[in-house]
């Protein structure tokens, strides 16, 4: 590791923002599961690392009826995957959290870190997309909120401006009868990066929301496809139609993890499987 950096651990968001403003190029450390890899491979050289885990408010994880779910920037992925309330209300999020890397890494990694790293294949991006998550940002100009779809701007790029940090993510409350499911295809059955990741949510009003990862430069909502699903029931015919149709809505590339041909194939396979599973559970 060639970086020789100072390590700071502020106690408040204000302190953190002030430090970031005064020290351009500072890297934010939450779990470090992406950052340390970059530092070790010397793909990143930095003078300052700012650890946000000392900021008490960022550890907040709660659900309030009518308001929804709030996940602070320092909340661990295992806290999310193990929370019964999230399993109950936001199943795709719980499943995606449970599929991220290994148990040991999930004890370090954070959800906010996963989205700030902005990998096209970010495991936790697709459930946030289908739940219309809101990203809470603080910076020199104050606080602002941004829809998760607008947060991802490119490969490893986000809408964060200089001096800004994400303090948390919130998910609106869900109604009775709302259901979702997450699946990912990987190269091994144990922990691995996603070849393709997908979340499908069916609301109580039978609206369908679909989020996908690793099939475009950023995680995306399949809005056109969602429209086409509007007047369709969830049944085997729809599932088979979806398996083929989805290929018109994704733009995968070939890389060291998978070919574009396989990503097309498996997008359809996973979407169909999710729809069949939801259907078997009584979702219409």
């Amino acid at each position: 590791m060639l970086s020789k950096f100072d390590y700071v651990k502020p106690k408040t968001v204000e302190e953190a923002v002030a430090f970031l403003e005064n020290n351009p190029g500072t890297r934010v450390l939450a779990g470090g599961t992406d950052l340390i890899v970059l530092l070790r491979r010397n793909l990143l050289i930095t003078d300052h690392i700012l650890d946000i885990k000392g900021i008490e408010g960022l550890h907040r994880l709660d659900y309030k009826e009518g308001k929804g779910l709030y996940i602070g920037a320092a909340v661990l992925v295992n806290e999310i995957s193990e929370a019964p309330m999230i399993q109950d209300k936001y199943r795709a999020l719980s499943q995606a959290a449970g599929s991220l890397a290994s148990h040991q890494l999930r004890n370090r990694a954070t959800l906010v870190g996963n989205i700030c790293n902005a990998s096209p294949g970010a495991d936790l991006s697709t459930p946030l997309l289908v739940y219309n998550a809101v990203v809470h940002i603080e910076g020199p100009e104050g606080k602002r909120e941004l829809g998760i779809e607008d947060f991802f701007t490119g490969v490893k790029k986000t809408a964060l401006k200089k001096g800004e940090i994400v303090t948390g993510v919130s998910l609106p409350d869900v109604q009775e009868g709302d259901s979702s499911y997450y699946k990912k295809q990987a190269r091994v059955k144990g922990h691995d990066l996603a070849t393709v990741g997908i979340s499908i949510r069916r609301t109580s009003e039978q609206e369908t929301l679909m989020g996908m990862a690793a099939i475009a430069p950023t995680p995306i909502r399949l809005r056109e496809l969602e429209k086409k699903l509007k007047n369709r029931d969830f049944n085997e015919e729809t599932a088979n139609w979806l398996k083929e149709e989805i290929k018109n809505h994704v733009k995968p590339i070939s890389d060291v993890r998978a070919s574009l041909e396989y990503r097309f194939l498996v997008s359809g396979a996973l979407a169909k499987k999710i729809m069949m599973t939801l259907m078997e559970e009584g979702v219409k």
Binding site: V37, K189, G190, R257
Partner: peptide, 16 residues
């Protein structure tokens, strides 16, 4: 070599 690290040079995990 495109995969000189565990991230992309996978070996079986306990689940395999």
């Amino acid at each position: 070599l495109l995969n000189p690290y565990f991230g992309d040079n996978r070996i079986p995990s306990s689940k395999d």
